[in-house]
Amino acid sequence: MTKPPIGQLRSRLSATIAVRTGLAVVGVGVGLWGLGLLLQSLSVDALIRLPLWLAGAVIANDFFLVPLTISVGWMLARWSIGPGHHRTVTTVRTMLLYAGITTLVAIPLLLRQGKGVNPTVLPRNYLRDWLLLEATIVLVGVLVAVVQGRRLTFRRSRASSGDIGGR
């Protein structure tokens, strides 16, 4: 492989630096514009409390949601080394993630069920619908696990019988 000449490398480098500087400068400008809008349109009281909510959002994510995901993932990884578990672990993991995300989105709906400002806001039975959704996720997961388990067993039995070359 031939290396590009030094001059070309240098110009590419200076182009990158220019783009990065440009992005940073425009970014800071746009961000300050947003900050200006906040200062302009919010009362002092709201301006004092908003940072608490911003920090709360970070704390909820970094010290609750992500650690929760990581600990469940760690437990799942430990479980997955058990005999036979490698066949279903992918399905179990996918199922947990689907159920987790849909539940997270459903929480406000469940909390506010029946408390809509008028009967056309939040008109569903969200508890029933959420249970149905989770049940569907679990059902599909179980079906996939069964089908995959069968396929693996089938492949292995054929492989061990020497019919074909196996996997």
């Binding site: 783009v19 990065r20 500087t21 440009g22 992005l23 940073a24 425009v26 970014g27 800071v28 400008g29 746009v30 961000g31 300050l32 514009w33 947003g34 900050l35 809008l37 906040l38 349109s41 919010l42 709201a46 301006l47 409390r49 908003l50 909510w53």
Partner: peptide, 23 residues
């Protein structure tokens, strides 16, 4: 805090911080 004004201003802050992040 008021929803509309905050939602709008935060959008600009997000775009600005995102551009810096990309840089």
């Amino acid at each position: 805090f008021p929803f509309k004004e905050t939602h709008y201003a935060l959008a600009w802050i997000i775009v600005g911080a995102l551009l810096v992040h990309l840089g």
